[in-house]
């Protein structure tokens, strides 16, 4: 199987971290993956974005013109990159910050999740990206939630392992929001 994902939001929402975490989880599962952050002038103006491709075989292009799934964490992202999702693809929207009522894409599977609210309810608004990662993992089936937990353990220094339970709660909440 082959999955491609585009995540976008503003700097500080942990867009790159979410992409990294999903990638690392895929590596733990023995899959191939490419993680391509936005670079260059696109990085300016506070926008953050990355493209992740997960594949059982060769990754092929790390650059995707029309990704099958896009995750929009803020309004500007949707306004700017709303047309990017592949026809018939999936859009996962942070409905706490994004109003998509004026958006005319009826070919998509649109999933609206109030990520900021969920993250705040769990105690830290900064976990929006974890909610998003959980939602994508559950929706796509690309990586297991256990792999995300394993990824957190592998990449976080020991002294920060105390944050893992809260982050996993956020990941599960994101996953739950997709299924619910």
């Amino acid at each position: 199987m082959r999955y491609d994902l585009f995540i976008t939001g503003f700097g500080g929402q942990g867009v790159l971290l979410a992409g990294n975490l999903l990638s690392y989880a895929a590596i733990i599962e023995g899959k191939n993956v490419s993680f391509l952050p936005a670079y260059g002038v696109e990085k300016r103006g506070g926008a953050a974005m990355c493209t992740v491709v997960i594949a059982d075989g060769e990754v092929g292009s790390p650059v995707i013109g029309r990704p099958s799934t896009c995750v929009y964490l803020n309004q500007t992202s949707l306004d700017r990159y709303g047309a990017k999702v592949k026809d018939g693809g999936v859009a996962i929207i942070n409905s706490s910050l994004v109003d998509d009522s004026g958006w005319s894409r009826d070919d998509l599977d649109v999933i609206r999740i109030p990520m900021n609210r969920i993250a705040m309810d769990l105690g830290d608004a900064r976990m929006v990206n974890m909610v998003a990662a959980g939602a994508y993992a559950a929706k796509s089936g690309s990586v297991a939630l256990e792999s995300l937990e394993q990824a957190l353990k592998s990449v976080l220094p020991e002294r920060n392992h105390r944050f893992i339970p809260a982050n996993m709660q956020a990941i599960r909440a994101g996953a739950g929001a997709v299924q619910g």
Binding site: S34, F35, V63
Partner: peptide, 10 residues
Amino acid sequence: DSVVGQMKEA
């Protein structure tokens, strides 16, 4: 180039 340089992979 920066695609290969900035990209992360296994």
